[in-house]
Simulated assay, not measured.
Amino acid sequence: MASDSTSLEKYLYELPEHRIAKHPLANRDDSKLLLYQAGQISHQTFKEVLDLVPNNALLFLNNTKVIAARLFFHKSTGAQIEVFLTEPILPHSEFQKALKAKNKCTWKCMIGNLKKWKDDNVLSLKLNDELEIKARLVDREQNLVEFSWAGNQEFLSIVEAAGHVPLPPYLNREEEEEDKDRYQTVFSELEGAVAAPTAGLHFTDDILDQLKTKGVKQDRVTLHVSAGTFRPIKDADFKNHDMHNERIIVNRDNIENILAAKGPIIPVGTTALRTLESLYWYGVKLSKNNSTKFFVEKNDPYESHLQDVLLEESMKAIMTKMDEDKVDELKGETEIFIYPGYEFKVANGLFTNFHMPASTLVLLVAAFVGDEWQKIYEEALNNNYRFLSYGDTSLLLPKG
């Protein structure tokens, strides 16, 4: 039974269907922006963001790139089988290497109509007269699918040619041409996400350039957003939720910039925030055990033996590890679960869209601003904000 403090019911709110943004606006920066600053709420447009971000702020952007992860195969009977790529297995478990695979690869997938796909039935998808991709179910329990094709093409080019944009399920529509560009940030670089870091969708190259001119420092981290981000919490006690695992990439510059920050550190989106906070906890674990693997578990932030390590100490532990291993980049995984009661270690502000009721992301926002999250969401609903991935956004600065 959930206690009052961990009851999911507290984080429900009514979201009318018509408030869910089904399409992007004509221009990225046409969106509304709700500013929450030291307890006060004001309503702006995203174009005014230049006046809202402190001059000495450090923004962290998630440069992951969404892949066309939805592949549709048809059986000879006409039945459609949807194969949704979620995690590379062979020949590499790293996205960048897996997407360079030639001739054959195996991925963990979500499969629609799985019951109609018999183990000995090889599905095929013809891309053109010369190229055909075949799919074979190699492990029904694990949903592992082996893809094979002739020729010298990398798997990424196959996916780009055959795949479809993995729009969030709550949009309840098929992809349209505009989604190929608009469900991608202008600063996306590294393929591997199956959902966009949506707070970044509002930024344009021009706004990023103007922020830089103003003195706002910018840095990039990578978290490959997984389909688990849409997984609903089913337990009345949210602490029992089985948190999804996502892959992150950070580098030496990230750590040096955190240590040198003179103003607020503001991640653009919950994914960038999860990356930064995970980085801190990895440093804490390293400070206790220098051989610790870069994997931040769901409950690490709540373990008493990992408390009371300063941010500087944590970052320096990571730098020491990088020096010893003679590397400038670290690849790890995180299933960090941020909910009310969490003490933020790196982030002082947050850009974020408006999220699904009783979701892990609403819990994260509630952890960041406390019970004020209810006032923020009520204000957004009362002022006709558009919600979810293609919706409007907010800038949260709890301490001003």
Rank of each mutant, 00 (worst) to 15 (best):
P301L: 03
L144D: 03
T106P: 01
V186W: 07
K75E: 07
I376G: 00
Q142P: 03
A26S: 12
L279P: 03
T106Y: 06
S314E: 01
Q184H: 11
L395I: 07
A260W: 04
Q153C: 05
L52C: 06
A68H: 13
H92G: 04
K97F: 02
F72L: 14
L381T: 08
T271I: 10
M322F: 11
K116N: 15
S394K: 04
E256K: 14
D242H: 11
V250M: 13
V221Y: 12
F147A: 03
T275V: 06
K118C: 03
A150K: 13
T360R: 05
D242P: 00
P168S: 08
L131K: 12
K115N: 14
Y170V: 11
D205K: 14
R182N: 10
T275P: 04
T64P: 08
K234V: 08
S389I: 08
V309R: 00
V268Y: 09
E130N: 13
V327H: 04
N289L: 01
F354S: 05
F295V: 14
Q44S: 03
E175S: 13
K321A: 12
N63R: 15
P88M: 07
V268N: 05
K104R: 15
A358S: 13
H92F: 13
I376W: 09
L279N: 02
F72A: 10
